[in-house]
């Protein structure tokens, strides 16, 4: 069985008195939230006081609490729910960790699909953003990829787990510029082929702003993984990835004629 990393935001239960609960100011919210809470809290106090009615008083009080939350970095509501966000700093948020999970069913056996994928050098055949993968030894490889906005990125990766015909997991090594990890599972079905489930985690080049730019320029990670899996399926089932780019059309015809015309005109002169 493969290991799953337990990600828990819940803190172990600890008993405390009501006084402790209300006076506890140990930070448990992030820097970003502290700033947002401060601005929102100030606004609410100003608006509430201006209203001069019961609702206004309540809003001002709420604003005051938000302000306090901002100043101390502690939230009673989070405390009651056992949530601690204090380790998520502004720079963490800006880095933009992206997670994508996609699945496709392929009319081939888990063994055939595993064999193809495990030869990592095959991956650029269907992952269009990859330029090349070179295996350096049985566990290590060097990856080269196209990044958003015409950049190129390279990194080293290691296989962290492999169960023949079932699972392959990999991640970038410590010294890599771009941090990413992936896991692909091959699950047999009774008579529908193999369910291929891919889970990718990575920090986008240029962080969250880079991810936003990528979305604008149509290189959205989730869409990219879907398209990669569609190509993988086609390659495995049919032996090819269907091409329509480069076929003939009246658009090319016009270009051909215009070029011919231009040549003819050039000849006349």
């Amino acid at each position: 069985m493969h290991k799953t990393e337990e990600i828990s935001t819940l803190r172990p239960e600890k008993k405390q008195s009501l006084t402790d609960f209300l006076t506890n100011t140990e930070p448990n919210i992030s820097q970003v939230e502290r700033i947002v809470s401060g601005i929102a809290g100030g606004g609410l106090v100003a608006y509430g006081l201006k209203r001069r009615d019961t609702a206004g008083v309540l809003l001002a009080a709420l604003g005051g609490l938000l302000g306090l939350r901002s100043a101390t970095g502690h939230c009673q509501v989070y405390d009651a729910l056992g949530i601690d966000q204090s380790d998520a700093s502004v720079s963490e948020w800006l880095k933009g960790k992206i997670e994508v999970q996609k699945a496709v069913t392929i009319n081939k056996s888990p063994a055939e699909l595993y064999r193809f994928w495990r030869n990592l050098e095959n991956l650029p055949q269907f992952m269009n953003h990859l330029e090349a993968v070179a295996e350096t030894d049985s566990k290590h490889s060097h990856w080269k990829a196209k990044a958003p906005l015409g950049q190129t990125v390279e990194w080293d990766a290691e296989i962290t787990e492999e169960v023949p015909n079932e699972l392959i997991a990999w991640r970038s090594t410590e010294n890599s510029d771009i941090k990413n990890a992936g896991r692909v599972r091959f699950k047999p079905t009774a008579n529908r082929g193999t369910e291929v489930v891919v889970h990718l985690t990575y920090e986008a080049p240029a962080g969250r702003l880079g991810a936003l730019a990528a979305k604008i320029f149509g290189e959205e990670p989730s869409q990219q993984v879907s398209e990669d899996l569609r190509r993988f399926k086609s390659l495995m089932e049919t032996g090819l990835i269907m091409k329509v780019e480069g076929q003939t059309s009246g658009r090319i015809g016009e270009v051909v004629e215009e070029k011919a015309k231009a040549r003819a005109q050039g000849g006349n002169r």
Binding site: L240, M242, G246, Q247, T248, S249, G250, G253, V256
Partner: peptide, 27 residues
Amino acid sequence: MKAVCWMGKHDVRVESVPDPTILNSRD
């Protein structure tokens, strides 16, 4: 070659276009 091209609504023309070529091995 000559081909019937759709140029827009109610606009179909016979154009000179390049001949088609093999793009995949199963073509």
